[in-house]
Design a protein around this nucleic acid. Structure first.
Length: 293
DNA sequence: CACTTGACCTGTCCGC
DNA sequence: TGCGGACAGGTCAAGT
């Protein structure tokens, strides 16, 4: 569920909190959440200072001054919550969450000098943290295959269309979700951008006109940018680095809105299954291209 | 090679 | 009330 805007929001938050902090201890209870050997954690992480925080696709990269970096993928239910020395009073949006830490789903706790902590919580245990040499990051399979960042200035409509059309027989939604086509798009922003561009999610890529693909390119970028501005989407588990929820979902036009009227035409939004995912769309605005006889 | 489906997990919700 | 099953969705492995 954390997609590009959610991971970007966390990155922006952690970038203000972590750099300069020194790690004093690391606790982890589930090997799949953090598979590194204890000796490597001790050697390259404990005592290390945080240099900065980056994002590529949906992966966070926390660079340390040991020439090692901590990669974090939140998958569906991961949270990365920083708790400093301040005490939040009742009524603070994060007070209850922070008071509950460490929680049942806390997988990793990183302690910093000065008594602040970073909690990695992950109810479903799909997410992971991994310590590795900074210089080797571009060599891991995922980063070798992953597509361009959709919000980067150099990412042009022609590139978007070329890459989508490598999967011409897939549904347009499956192609958008394919991280090797384009980085960072997940279920929420696929549905929202297809609605904005008036494209049926199940239509094969080859049946979608270039004009509509250009519209999709524009809609996707606008929606990702808007969501970052709103602090991301909080569906079930997502919170930012300070435990706060995002507000984008209240701006969503179709996601989780089946049965509600389409904001453009009033037709009830439908929910179907496309590319193995729950898919929300307007059956009036987003028509399948007529199949040729 | 292109494409789809199942596995990884746990908590929640729905029907009986 | 309890219980079984469907569902949530990012990514990789396995299958067609």
């Amino acid at each position: 569920m954390p997609e590009l805007p959610e991971v970007e929001t966390i990155k922006l938050g952690l970038s203000k909190l972590l750099p300069g902090l020194v790690i004093t201890n690391v606790q982890h209870d589930w090997p799949k959440s953090f598979p590194n050997a204890p000796a490597d954690v001790e050697r390259f992480m404990v005592g290390a200072k945080v240099l900065g925080v980056r994002r590529r696709a949906k992966v966070l990269i926390i660079d340390l001054n040991t020439k090692y970096s901590l990669l974090v993928h939140l998958k569906m239910t991961g949270q990365l919550v920083f708790v400093g020395q301040e005490r939040f009073g009742a009524g603070h949006p994060s007070a209850d969450l922070i008071a509950s830490l460490p929680a049942k789903a806390t997988r990793v706790i990183i302690d910093f000098a000065g008594a602040s902590k970073l909690f990695f919580n992950d109810q479903r245990k799909f997410g992971w943290m991994r310590l590795m040499p900074t210089i080797e990051i571009p060599e891991i399979d995922f980063f070798k295959k992953v597509g361009p960042e959709p919000l980067e200035a150099g990412f042009k409509p022609a590139d978007f269309i070329d890459r989508l059309q490598r999967r011409k027989n897939s549904s347009i939604k499956a192609a958008l979700l394919d991280q090797t086509v384009i980085a960072g798009v997940g279920n929420i922003y696929a549905d929202e951008s297809l609605w904005a561009a008036k494209i049926h999610p199940a239509g094969p890529v080859s049946t979608v006109s270039n004009a509509k693909l250009i519209k999709l390119y524009q809609s996707l970028r606008e929606i990702l940018n808007l969501s970052i501005k709103k602090g991301g989407s909080t569906d079930r588990n997502y919170v930012d680095s300070q435990g706060k929820k995002g507000s984008y979902l209240s701006f969503a036009k179709v996601f989780r809105r089946q049965g509600q009227p389409c904001p453009r035409c009033g037709t009830p939004i439908e929910k179907i299954r496309v590319a193995g995912r729950g898919t929300h769309f307007c059956p009036h605005c987003q028509k399948l291209p007529r199949s040729p006889k």
